[in-house]
Write a protein that binds this DNA or RNA. Structure first.
Lengths: 270, 270
DNA sequence: GCAAAAGTGTTAACAGTACACCCATGT
DNA sequence: ACATGGGTGTACTGTTAACACTTTTGC
C-alpha cells in the first residue's frame, strides 16, 4: 500500500456513518419418513423444515427460521454455517444464498437486514440427531411442508402454521413473495420460506440438491421419491431412471430383505 | 404489540453489538454499437459494462463498479437503484441480486460487506446519456467485455484491464470465482463482474433479460444479435425465430431505408 | 445486378412421454 | 401365490439443429 493510501485510511472513520445489524437466517430442509402398512411398502417421504420457537420478544412464542447475527471476522456463509451447526449439531455441507431482506420495518428491534440461506440436511443424520436447544432455551421442531395455490402449510404434530402469499415482482422486476396472511410465523419469515421452497423445487426439478437429502449410496427409487417429495410432482419410474442415468454411478451393492427384488445401490457421479 | 414486548424493545440496544457497513455494487451492462463498412450492413453489437475510476484511496485510480453505502430507511435494492440513477441519470428498471461479498479483508477501510447487483441499460438511453461524474468527481467509462477461458478483458479506448479467474465451489458448495490475477480493478470487483457475467449469460441463453437491452420495439435480428453479443454464441436465424416466436408480439410497423427487405418490428409479449 | 437482411420450408436427429412387460424377493 | 418394487423395451410425440430456398430493398 502506498504511504498516501495509508495516511488516508488512518483518518477514515466508518463509525461516522450509520450501519445496520446483519443476520443470516437459514431455511433447512430435510425428509421425514412415514411408515406405510404392508411389510413390502417403501416408507413415504415428506419434505420438512426446521423452525425454532422464539423465547423472547419480538414475536415471542412465534416460530422462526434458525439464524443469528453476523460477527466480526466471518462471512455471511460461515455465519449461516455456524448458526446452523450450533442449532442442529450436524455438519453443514451445503448452503445457497437465496436473497437479502432489508425492508426497514421488517424487525421491530431496529435496522436489521437478513441474508436468507437454503440448506439441506441428510435424512440419515436427521434421524440420529438430537436437536439442540438454542442459546435462549427455545425449542426447535421439524415441520412437514405443503405449498399449493399460494398457501403454505407447516405441520408438526398438533401445531399448524399457515400463510397465504402471492408471487409478485418489485419495482426492479425482482421476484418476491408478498405475505397476505401469516399465522404463527415470526418477522417476514413466511416470505423467506416461500422463496426458499420455490428455489429448492426449481433445483430439484433439474436433478440438483436432491442427492443432499440422502446418504452416500441410495437406490434409484429412493432418489425418485426424494425428487417427488420436494417438487410435489410425480414421475414415471422408467423415465426417471433414464434421465438420472448419467448423473449416478452404480456400485456392486444391493439392498436386502425388502420383500421384493433387490435394488442396486448408486452414488452421485462426477 | 403486547406491553411486555414493548418493554423488552425499550431495553434492547442493537448498538451494543458490532455492525458492518453495507454497500450495494452494481454491474450494469449495455450494448455498444460498432458501424461496419458497407451501407447495407447491420452495426455490430458489443456487450459493455460501466466502471468508475476511483479518485480516492484505497485503490486510487483503479476502476470499480458503481455503488455506495446503504442508508437508513432504504432497502439494498433501492440503494442500488439510487446509486445507479445518480451515476447514469437513467431510470433503473431492472435489478438482480447476484450475491453478497463479505470476506472480512475485502476492503482495507474496514468491515464492509457488498451486495452485488446486475442491471441492464437500454441501448437507446445509453447513446443519449451523458454519464454524470460521481460525487468525488471521478470519471466513468463503458468498457467492452470479453470473457473466454477464464480470462476477463475489459477495453475502453486505450485502457485495457484484464483479470484471470477460476470458477470454484466454497466449503458449502456455493459457486464462486477466485481471482488469480487482476490488473487495474479495485477490491474484489473482478469476482463480482465474473459472477454477474455468468448469471447474465445464463439468463440470456434462456431468452431472459435480452429485451432490456433494446427499445420498446425491435426487429428479430436485433434481438438475435443482442443474445449473441451477450452469450458470445452464434445462432441460426431460422431457429432463433421459431424459439422466440411465442415470447414476442408483432406490430404493424416495419423498418425502412436499410438497403434490404423491410423487417417487422416486434415487442415483448405477455 | 447485387449484397444484405427478412422470412419460410424441410429433414434428420434427439429428447420426452406414456405404457407394456418381465424379474426377483419375503411372507 | 402374490404384492411390491426393480428394471428394460418400444412406440409416439414434440423439440432442436442444420441447411436450402425465396423475398425485398437501396444503391
Amino acid at each position: 500500500m502506498h504511504p498516501e493510501e495509508h495516511e488516508f485510511l488512518k483518518n477514515y472513520r466508518l463509525e461516522d456513518y450509520p450501519r445496520p445489524s446483519v443476520t443470516a437466517d437459514i431455511a433447512v430442509f430435510s425428509l421425514h419418513q412415514e411408515e406405510l402398512p404392508g411389510y413390502r411398502r417403501e416408507p413415504e417421504k415428506k419434505l420438512c423444515i426446521l423452525l425454532i420457537q422464539r423465547g423472547n420478544p419480538p414475536f415471542k412464542d412465534c416460530w422462526a427460521l434458525p439464524g443469528g447475527f453476523l460477527q466480526p471476522g466471518e462471512t455471511v456463509e460461515t455465519c449461516a454455517g455456524r448458526e446452523l451447526q450450533e442449532e442442529t449439531g450436524a455438519e453443514v455441507r451445503l448452503l445457497r444464498h437465496i436473497g437479502i431482506f432489508s425492508q426497514p420495518e421488517r424487525d421491530p428491534r431496529g435496522w436489521i437486514i437478513s441474508n436468507a440461506f437454503l440448506s439441506v440436511l441428510n435424512q440419515e443424520k436427521l434421524s440420529q440427531m438430537e436437536i439442540q436447544g438454542a442459546d435462549d432455551a427455545a425449542c426447535a421442531k421439524w415441520f412437514d411442508i405443503e405449498f399449493t395455490q399460494n398457501v403454505l402449510t407447516l405441520r408438526s404434530g398438533e401445531i399448524v402454521l399457515t400463510a397465504r402469499v402471492k408471487e409478485i415482482r418489485n419495482q426492479f422486476d425482482m421476484p418476491e413473495f408478498e405475505i397476505l396472511e401469516s399465522g404463527g410465523l415470526a418477522f417476514d419469515h413466511a416470505k423467506i420460506i416461500a422463496l426458499a421452497l420455490r428455489y429448492l423445487r426449481q433445483e430439484a426439478r433439474e436433478f440438483r440438491l436432491i442427492f443432499d437429502f440422502l446418504p452416500e449410496t441410495f437406490t434409484l427409487t429412493e432418489l425418485q421419491k426424494t425428487q417427488e417429495a420436494v417438487t410435489g410432482e410425480p414421475t414415471l419410474p422408467a423415465n426417471f431412471r433414464r434421465k438420472i442415468s448419467d448423473r449416478v454411478a452404480g456400485t456392486e451393492d444391493f439392498t436386502e430383505g425388502a420383500g421384493h427384488r433387490p435394488a442396486r445401490l448408486y452414488r452421485k457421479s462426477e
